[in-house]
Design a protein around this nucleic acid. Structure first.
Lengths: 350, 350
DNA sequence: TTGTACGCGTTATCAC
DNA sequence: GTGATAACGCGTACAA
């Protein structure tokens, strides 16, 4: 094994005493090579390690790769805002590599909106589609259509089971429920009463919330702790302000030591905490502005950061590396479950 | 402003009615261009946005960039182990971009070892040096020498002040002390007694530990909490096992509610915790194997993750992007202060 | 079955 | 001053 670093096709051709074309035919198994030449080239290839130069490859191959992203509108829910930053960043970084990104934006409260955007995107036949599978059934069907149309399929934020997806990036939601449970356990000791709150505009996040709930409950069961846990669904009613619904709810329940909010809406709860109420500890999700404000003022104890920006950035990077450099796509990747308190949030915000 | 995306020099030449060479001279300000041609080219450049193609650039420019890394031996302290993974990963990813990495390994307990490695590295005049400035004075002097020799200088893990460094990546240590303080505050309430432990083989980490201590104390002062805080330095004595020193220490102090270990040596403490002792809460630093073991068994409450792997990976990436694509180097960058408990550590370990 | 020549975009050199 | 041309490494079309 020689030690020189990067061999080119030209190098190999010289070493084997044949021409570049022959080497190329051997490497790409195009045939039309005499057994003698084949042997000579293979002999060289065995001794050295040949890796094609990805730079030269992508310079030559000035194909445009179209990647589409199906994601929710950020006006409806600021949780999605960082995703748009990630897209912009990727566009800047990879515009010269022939990467084009097209956004398909849908209303997170409307299944029809999702389906419609999905159809528009699919009609343009991009090379890959990255989507947030908020609506499970629709997303799964759509994923199947894409796979059939030979479009690479990736998801973030949620997972899809029972359907082959090329790349799935997100957080282990069950485990994040356990993380919250552990935090309460440390803060409250061996005995306490807790409430799990699924607060959402609509219930499109149902499976999302349930996985968290399950992880949360499982923790206490496994540790055999004397925790009393009740579960509530709070949904925005047609003409009633959300605040009113929550206020009413808080007055109606028997006081608890801790509240676990499985969505990014913990701030709605914190908003309603008055002096009169017994001030339970709140653990919620996501670094949206209003949550951070309450975290900084100790009205929220902890937030779990799902880092949607990183999810998008990573997903796109993986897809791009697949197209440009032929790196394999891992099927699924779980990102860290970041625990955030009033002292460490700033570094997560850039 | 036209809408076509990436203009090449050839495009510009055609639009301006001159040759590629002339356009090149205008763009690179090499002179030798008639005022008429200059005007024509500038007119085109004003209307479109020209960004040179970094791929073609680096294909042509097949220069090798040598980057040297001065970092501690991982045998002495497993904390550094992940850094070596990061280096390997970078080598794989960028070998085709002409990036060569050379390691200069030193003993973290020996100033001479550092100086010697530094000299060897400097003698080879790499394009950039990334180092861990464990020994402040020596590192600062060395940094000055590098800057004078026109070598790009980067640091990770610790910061250097009063000396211009091109890139500094690390964690805000003062703030990480505050994070630990906040965690104790949440676990222990408004009144408690704590001990800060600086446990180290030697004291090369002095400034490191002191910044954490300062942040920790500052938190309680600012919040005006009734916390009693004592500080201890525990150092490995020549012929006495560290365990014995720590055991003795634990028996000698008045019991406290919490122990804050400012180094990665919290496991040494946890090892000595017996049933008889009152079991104070321990918060320490770093995901080394022994710490994680205690974390998983609830002998350590929290660990703060400094992510040395990410620090190295990011530092090297920034340097490489500077060389290959001319991206500017930010002077300093603070990474997130990750809070780790028994439920979320696995995702941080890959 | 082979070798050669061309083009991708940039840069540097060399005639004109 | 200027424009044509070679070179970086790869893939491929085409000629031998």
């Amino acid at each position: 094994m020689l030690m020189k670093k990067n061999y080119t096709i030209k190098d190999i051709a010289e070493l084997a005493g044949v021409s570049k074309g022959t080497v190329d035919r051997v490497i790409h198994k195009r045939g039309k090579v005499s057994s003698k030449a084949l042997e000579q080239v293979n002999k060289v290839l065995d001794q050295i390690e040949y890796k094609p130069n990805p730079i030269a490859k992508s310079l030559k191959n000035n194909k445009v790769y179209n990647i589409a992203i199906l994601l929710p509108d950020a006006d409806n829910d600021p949780y999605w805002l960082p995703c748009y930053d990630a897209i912009k960043q990727i566009e800047n970084e990879f515009s010269h590599f022939g990467i084009k990104i097209k956004k398909g934006i849908f209303n997170p409260q409307s299944t029809e909106s999702f389906t419609k955007s999905a159809e528009i995107i699919l009609a343009e036949k991009p090379d890959a589609i990255l989507m947030v599978p908020l609506f499970y059934k629709e997303a799964k069907d759509f994923a199947k259509n894409c796979v059939d149309a030979n479009i690479k399929m990736a998801t973030f934020n949620n997972y899809i089971k029972d359907q082959k997806i090329d790349l799935q990036i997100g957080q282990d939601l069950f485990q994040s429920g356990r993380v919250a449970a552990k935090l309460f356990n440390m803060l409250l000791g061996t005995k306490a009463s807790l409430a799990i709150l699924h607060i959402d505009e609509a219930f499109q996040n149902a499976s999302h919330m349930q996985e968290k709930e399950l992880g949360f409950k499982t923790y206490y069961l496994q540790k055999e702790l004397d925790y009393d846990i009740s579960v509530y669904n709070l949904k925005k009613e047609a003409k009633i302000p959300f605040k009113k619904t929550i206020d009413h709810f808080l007055k109606s329940i028997t006081p608890v030591d801790g509240l676990f909010v499985t969505t990014s809406k913990a701030y709605l709860l914190a908003n309603c905490m008055t002096e009169s109420f017994s001030k339970p500890l709140i653990i919620g999700y996501d670094l949206v502005a209003e949550n951070i404000d309450h975290l900084a003022h100790d009205k929220i104890a902890f937030l779990i950061h799902q880092d949607p920006k990183k999810q998008v950035y990573l997903s796109l990077t993986k897809l791009i590396e697949y197209f440009l450099f032929g790196k394999p796509l891992q099927e699924s990747l779980s990102l860290p479950i970041d625990i955030i308190n009033s002292e460490n949030y700033p570094q997560y915000l850039k």
